[in-house]
Design a protein around this nucleic acid. Structure first.
Lengths: 110, 110
DNA sequence: GCAGTATGCTACAAAATATGTAGCGTCAAG
DNA sequence: CTTGACGCTACATATTTTGTAGCATACTGC
């Protein structure tokens, strides 16, 4: 099932609340990773695929299509990159990195 | 495939970097939603399920198991709730809500 | 005791998604 | 006209998710 635009129904939720739409997209395999790998700048299809440990092109293309429809990335010149909205989201994601490091450390102690 | 603990290999990534582990978990369907629905406090299995639009118990149980293994939630007394790590993550998620609202508004304009 | 109820969870078959390999069509340079 | 890069599709296989049914345990009142 393709995620829907905000305002429409979303898998399992009849409200179409933006946060649900977002969870729907990000909850698809590889979406978070793809957004993450674009953090250093524009990448073309093949390089992006390589960065994502050779994700299958079928899935990569499906995700890129969704992310474009949701205006989180665009495709110009030499490849794919964030839109301004996508960049904002990416900034939020960036905060997860440090958190995850600390989280991993605390897991080791248990 | 079950997500692995940090330090071990993760789907598609041989580094086992914590952020990859995190993306791996959060990228599973329903994981973000489940974390989100716990934001108001402890919920038992059935209530949590109801909050998640009657997600199938099979998946809910699988996700809860994973989240417990990763020390993001625990199960005591009357149900499931964040651990301290889970609460931190939830705080970060909370920031997504307002962002998503604005994002949705800007999408309408296009 | 013993029915009634709530809870956490499992079984299982069907449906939806993801994976991996191969390769096509377009374009531009040599 | 060959070569290479690029974005992407086809397709068969494998994995994951879904949805319904219902089990096992632990209470609670009677």
């Amino acid at each position: 099932m393709q995620p829907k635009k905000p305002g429409t129904r979303v898998r399992g939720s009849t409200t179409g609340r933006p946060i649900m739409v977002l969870f729907d997209v990000l909850g698809q395999r590889w979406t978070l990773r793809i957004l993450w790998e674009l953090r250093h700048g524009r990448l073309n299809f093949r390089d992006l695929r390589a960065q994502c440990d050779d994700i299958s092109p079928t899935v990569l293309n499906a995700r890129l299509k969704t992310l474009r429809e949701l205006a989180l990335i665009d495709h110009q010149d030499g490849g794919y990159a964030y839109t301004s909205a996508g960049a904002e989201l990416s900034n939020k994601l960036a905060g997860f990195d440090q958190w995850a490091e600390n989280w991993a450390k605390s897991l080791d102690l248990s």
